[in-house]
């Protein structure tokens, strides 16, 4: 299936979860804030959240510089 992450198309295996996308992008679930199709993903659902073909994901990772 094909999803769009921060505007870029990403191909994932059917039945993939948000965590698979994070792995593909090299980011850890615990330091990412994400929305799927405009809906915030609660922290506890972050890893297990299933994705579907065509989902639009926006994500941002925590930074700490000042």
């Amino acid at each position: 299936m094909r999803v769009v992450a921060n505007g870029e198309p990403v191909h994932l295996a059917d039945g993939a979860a948000l965590v698979d996308l994070f792995e593909r992008l090299g980011v850890g679930a615990k330091w990412v804030v994400a929305e799927v199709n405009g809906q915030a993903v609660p922290r506890r659902d972050m890893a297990a959240r299933r994705l579907a073909d065509g989902d639009v994901i926006e994500l941002v990772r925590a930074v700490a510089g000042g």
């Binding site: 980011v27 850890g28 615990k30 330091w31 922290r43 925590a62 700490a64 510089g65 000042g66």
Partner: peptide, 25 residues
Amino acid sequence: CQVPEPPPAELAPSCSEAGVLGVLP
């Protein structure tokens, strides 16, 4: 709630290591 734990050091380089465009702050 937003960042329950910090990323490991190798995933969290600081600005002194990675740089920052001066206007950004």
